[in-house]
């Protein structure tokens, strides 16, 4: 339990998807013009990461890993399907996003109207595939740890996009050099925020 909490906090602050690995930068830069839309996209990312990382963890553990198929029959002990992981992960993500979209549309039209337009974007958000690939690389031990990592990364991404959107709303009233306006200053701001987030390095609960 303690370990799970530790992974959760660590993936929010220390291994932040945006500030430490630059994942999901495309939508981060494109959708962070106002706080409202960035909250919507951030929530959708938490949701999708929280679902796809555990599913991909199970697939990795029971099908893709070297020797993972042993539960089926002892003769599969030498089978290594890990080269298929990219295509399986992206297929799971695309399918889950489609499924989540349909479920949300059916049961909560109000949530759908606020999240709906962002969901299709998420299938090609690097943060989602990155979450699954990091999960595979770091070799988490239990399903609980993988889920905590997925949710934590989502929350970290949410924090980052809401913070930059708030700053961009304010910076419109500042006197930025013309050549730096818009995307240039956003890059530099993200860099400065990344330096600030580095003060969390070494946190351990």
């Amino acid at each position: 339990m303690h370990e799970i909490f530790n992974i959760f906090i660590k993936s929010i602050f220390v291994d932040n998807m945006i500030f430490a690995y630059f994942l999901g930068m495309c939508s981060y830069l494109a959708v962070s013009k106002t706080v409202d839309t960035s909250v919507g996209l951030g929530a959708a990312v938490i949701f999708v990461l929280g679902i796809t990382v555990p599913i991909n963890y199970l697939l990795n553990e029971y099908i893709l890993k070297p020797g993972a198929m042993v539960w089926l029959d002892a003769q599969f002990a030498s089978v290594d399907l890990s080269f298929l992981s990219f295509i399986i992960f992206i297929a799971v993500i695309a399918a889950m996003v489609q499924l989540v979209e349909m479920v949300v549309e059916k049961f909560s039209p109000s949530l759908y109207s606020s999240l709906g337009i962002f969901l299709p974007l998420i299938a090609v958000n690097c943060a989602i595939l990155g979450g699954s690939l990091f999960m595979q690389e770091r070799d988490y031990q239990t399903l609980g740890q993988a889920t905590a990592f997925g949710l934590g990364s989502g929350v970290g991404w949410f924090l980052a996009i809401v913070a930059i959107a708030a700053i961009r709303e304010k910076i419109r009233y500042s006197n930025v050099p013309p050549a730096l306006r818009g995307i240039g200053i956003t890059f530099i701001l993200t860099g400065l925020m990344g330096i600030a987030f580095m003060s969390f390095l070494g946190i351990k609960l």
Partner: peptide, 18 residues
């Protein structure tokens, strides 16, 4: 460190747009 990559790109954009 990672954040400097962002700042470097920011500066490249600055020079290019100038």
């Amino acid at each position: 460190l990672p954040p400097m990559a962002l700042i470097t790109v920011g500066v490249i954009i600055w020079v290019q747009r100038y």
